[in-house]
Design a protein around this nucleic acid. Structure first.
Lengths: 311, 311
DNA sequence: GATGCTTACGATACCCGTAAAGATA
DNA sequence: TATCTTTACGGGTATCGTAAGCATC
C-alpha cells in the first residue's frame, strides 16, 4: 500500500471511475493507474470496484468503507505538508479562499488589502464559485477558506462561523413609481417585473421564501450572478432590482435609487467555513481574524478539532 | 513521503529515539532508518527531531504536531488492512484481547469458550498484562479489545463499556477467629495482617481507599497479581485475604472460608475498552456481545466513531 | 572501548511510461 | 469505430542491506 495507490482510489471515485481521466488528473499513465488499482486489490485480497467486463462502474461494499479511510489519510497527508510549510516558511506560502462574487466584490476587499499588507509573501488566491462549488472545493481540500451566505452551514464536515449580517435592498431607476410608495410593501414590489440573483446565490432563497410566505408569486424576469449585471438592467428599465444592500452605492450609481426595504426581508448572514480536520497555516487564521476579530485562532482551531499550536 | 517513513517516525518516538532499536523493531537496517528520517526531513524542509551531534534526543515543535497526524494515518492504515480481511475472510483472522489475570481466569473463560465455538477459525490471542500495559497495547494498536477494572475509563482515546460488577470477599483459613465476628467490620479485619492484590490491580485502589476512609492503616504483608497466590498464602496462615469474590470457590478451596463482606467494600465494575478509531472485525463485535449482550455492534461502533457496516 | 548515527556503494525490486491487444459502448 | 482497460516489456529510480567511517557516552 502506498500513497499513489490511495490517491488513485480517491481520484477514481471523484472522476466517476474513468481511469483515463484519473491518469490525466494525476499526471501519470492509464496503465500505471490500472496496475496500481489491481496491485492494491491483490494486496488487500478484496475487490474494491464493481466491474462490468473491463469497465469500472462503482465501489463494492468494502470499497465504500475503504474510501472513507483513504480520504482521511490523504487529508492528513496534505495537513502534514502544510504543517511543515508553516514551520519552514512561517509567513510564506499560498492561501486559497473561495467565495461568491458578492463577497469577493463587496465584503472581502478591505480584508484582502489588510492581509496583503500583513503577509506580502503569501500568494492569496481568490477563487470565485457557486455555493455548491465552494463546498466541494473545501471538502476536496482545493481551498482553505470558504466565504458565502448559502450552503456552508448545512454541511456537517465543515465548521462555519458567522462573518457579518446584511440586508437586501430594492433598487429602481430614478423617478420610478415605487419611490412614492411609503412604506414599501411586498405587494407593491410584486406588481413589477423583478431582477435579482440566480437561484442558490446571495440570499435568493430567502427572497423567494419571503414572497411565497406573503402569498405572492412575483415575476422574476431576469436573474444574474452579480449585482453589477442586475444594476445594469434595472437602469435600462427592465425591472425592479433586489440585491445585497452593500452592492448599492449612491455615488457610483447616480441613475438608481435605493428604497427602504429593511422591514420586508429577513437578515442574511454570510459565513466563513473551513473543512473539519483541515490544517490551517498561521496566516489563514489571521485572514479569518481580519474578517471578524472575535474568530480567534483558539476558537477556530477548536471547532476544527485541531489543537492550536503553541507559538 | 511514504508509509515506511511514517512507521519509522512513530517507532522512533516509541523507542525513545534509539534508531538501532527502531531498525530491529521494524526488521530493517539502521542505515535505512537513518536515511528515511533524513529524506523525510528534507522533503518537508523541517527538522523533526532534536539532535545533539549525531544522537536524537526528542521531537521539535513541528515534530510533535506531525507525530499526532502520523499516528492517525498509521491507525487508518491498520484499519484498512483489517477492513480488507473482514471482507476477504469473514470469520477468519486474529483477535487480540488483553486483560488482567483475574478477568482471564474468572470472567472470560465462558466467553472464550462460546467464542471459539462460534468462530473456530479465529486465532484468539489472550494477552495478560497490568492495567497500564493494557491501555498501552490498546493505544498502540497491539490489541483489539481490553478488559480490566482499572485505568480504562480514564483514558480519553479509549471507548469503554461496563462489563459486569463484582465485590471483594474476605477469605480466612477454616477456624479463623474472624469467622466469629458478626457482622464483620473493617476494624476487625485491620487487626490482622492482610494479603491482597498488587497496587493497580483488581480493585486494590478501592480497598486502600475504603480502609483510609475509615481511618485505618492495615498491615498488608503481601501482595500478589492473582488470587491463586493470595489463597495459597492465606491457607498457610500468613494472613487474611481480600480478593475478588468470583475467585473463591468453596468446593475447590475446602481449607478456606469466605466471610460476608458485601457491606464493607464498594462494588467494582470491570470494563471492556477499545481504542477510538480502531476498526473492529465483525467477530470482535461478537466477542463483546458475548461478554454483555446489550453491547451491540451498533452501540459499540457508534462509540468508536465508526459507522456500523451494512451487512 | 562500546554504542549509536551517518555516508558510500552495489544489488534488487518497484514504479513509470510506451506500445500492443482486448473489451465495451 | 471510438473509447477505455488490461497486459507486456524495457528503462529508470528508489529502496535496502552491507560495510566502513565517525561521533557520543
Amino acid at each position: 500500500m502506498n500513497f499513489q495507490q490511495l490517491r488513485i482510489v480517491r481520484e477514481t471515485v471523484r472522476r466517476n471511475f474513468n481511469l483515463t481521466e484519473v491518469a490525466n488528473a494525476l499526471f501519470t499513465s492509464q496503465s500505471g493507474v490500472s496496475k496500481h488499482i489491481k496491485d492494491l486489490e491483490d494486496e488487500l485480497g478484496v475487490e474494491l470496484f464493481v466491474r462490468k467486463g473491463k469497465r469500472l462502474l462503482g465501489l463494492t461494499a468494502p470499497g465504500k468503507e475503504l474510501v472513507v479511510m483513504v480520504e482521511r489519510m490523504l487529508l492528513d497527508a496534505a495537513n502534514i505538508k502544510r504543517l511543515a510549510e508553516q514551520y519552514s516558511q512561517r509567513d510564506e506560502g499560498r492561501l486559497t479562499v473561495v467565495t461568491t462574487h458578492t463577497q469577493a466584490r463587496y465584503a472581502l476587499p478591505k480584508v484582502v488589502t489588510a492581509f496583503k499588507r500583513a503577509f506580502p509573501k503569501v500568494h492569496l488566491k481568490l477563487h470565485q464559485g457557486s455555493p455548491d462549488e465552494i463546498v466541494q472545493m473545501l471538502l476536496d481540500g482545493a481551498a482553505d477558506i470558504g466565504v458565502a451566505t448559502e450552503a456552508l452551514a448545512e454541511v456537517a464536515e465543515l465548521a462555519s462561523f458567522p462573518f457579518y449580517g446584511w440586508q437586501h435592498a430594492v433598487i429602481v431607476p430614478a423617478g420610478h413609481a415605487l419611490e412614492a410608495v411609503q412604506p414599501l410593501t411586498l405587494e407593491a414590489i410584486a406588481e413589477y417585473p423583478l431582477i435579482t440573483y440566480h437561484e442558490g446565490f446571495t440570499g435568493r432563497a430567502r427572497i423567494d421564501r419571503t414572497f411565497a410566505a406573503a402569498g405572492l408569486a412575483p415575476d422574476i424576469v431576469m436573474s444574474a450572478l452579480d449585482a453589477d449585471v442586475i444594476k445594469t438592467y434595472v437602469e435600462l428599465g427592465l425591472g425592479v432590482g433586489i440585491l445585497a444592500s452593500m452592492a448599492f452605492n449612491p455615488a457610483r450609481d447616480p441613475g438608481l435609487r435605493r428604497l427602504d426595504s429593511a422591514h420586508l426581508f429577513p437578515e442574511n448572514v454570510t459565513r466563513i467555513a473551513v473543512r473539519r480536520g483541515h490544517y490551517l497555516r498561521g496566516f489563514a487564521y489571521r485572514f479569518i481574524e481580519l474578517c471578524e476579530p472575535e474568530l480567534t485562532e483558539t476558537r477556530v482551531a477548536h471547532a476544527l478539532g485541531a489543537a492550536a499550536p503553541t507559538p
